[in-house]
Design a protein around this nucleic acid. Structure first.
Lengths: 157, 157
DNA sequence: CGGCTATGATTGACGCGTCAGCTACATTCC
DNA sequence: GGAATGTAGCTGACGCGTCAATCATAGCCG
């Protein structure tokens, strides 16, 4: 009879696998962020926001809609938009039709920043991630990520 | 003749693989951190420091030695130790033999915090990560992580 | 209408991470 | 000895993320 999951202590292999996985993915994240910052002067958060806005009709979105689209808490977005607005990447306007609402609008400067960042960013993704893996490994990575994503989503209460 | 790597734009599959990988690993990281915080009132950074100190002879380590052991910048560690010291988890002492140096010492309170956190932490690792994956997937995840780790290490100038 | 709750968004406090810069002590070399 | 250089560690500023609290407006129900 196989051991029940969730009861036993971690084996050496499990612990090692966990550690290399969590530490390396964190490392990758920070390397990518560093590259983006160095190449284009924006953070991965900025990039995410700029990209989403650039694809929205009128290059503008309701704040909460944007938050939902990129899976951020509203308060996180609010702080982030504040910083981006200070740098001129976006602008806030009152939402038409609902006086509670706010819209984030991509400025020309924001659009330019996104344009400048895209090529180097893709390049970094290729260099730091895609180039490292064989096609089979890439497929495996995707499979693992999708499985984990579904697993995490399922336990989110 | 196969296309040269690093030249072409990203394919749909590559981009999707990248996104699910980076977003899910980030999600996992934050879920684990949240669990640790909720279960035991400490952060993953605290955990890392406490663990390392608990295994050191005399439960104490030179600051820079500790930083190297856990691959942190010295300034990051300095800030972190400051916060941990304020909460009584560690204590700082002048290093014997080198008046420039400082030692971080695990307090009893720190040792207790580590003890209290270990079981719930392992449980969370199992629940959020290990339980999600088949043995083959876990092996694949490890292989991918090790490959990436080596790749990243190699390009670190 | 007047009060209730829900919703959209912001704010403040605080932990965390990076960077640049600083102080203090150690070492090296003349 | 004493200047130059290196090493250990700390600090301040600032971006980032979370949480709890706040505030205004919207919508609903008597």
């Amino acid at each position: 009879m196989p051991q029940r999951k969730g009861r036993t202590a971690l084996t050496r292999t499990e612990l090692d696998s966990w550690r290399v996985f969590i530490e390396t993915t964190e490392d990758l994240r920070s390397a990518l962020g560093g590259r983006l910052q160095a190449d284009s002067g924006i953070s991965t958060g900025d990039y995410r926001v700029l990209l989403e806005l650039s694809e929205a009709p009128g290059r503008r979105m309701r704040s909460s809609h944007l938050a939902e689209a990129i899976c951020w808490e509203r308060s996180r977005l609010s702080h982030h938009l504040g910083r981006m607005e200070k740098r001129g990447l976006i602008r806030r306007e009152a939402a038409a039709g609902d006086n509670r609402g706010a819209e984030a609008v991509l400025t020309d400067e924001g659009r330019d920043a996104l344009r400048r960042s895209s090529v180097p960013h893709f390049h970094a993704i290729r260099e730091l991630f895609l180039d490292a893996l064989t096609p089979a490994q890439l497929a495996a990575a995707r499979d693992v990520a999708e499985t984990l994503r579904d697993h995490l989503a399922a336990r989110r209460t």
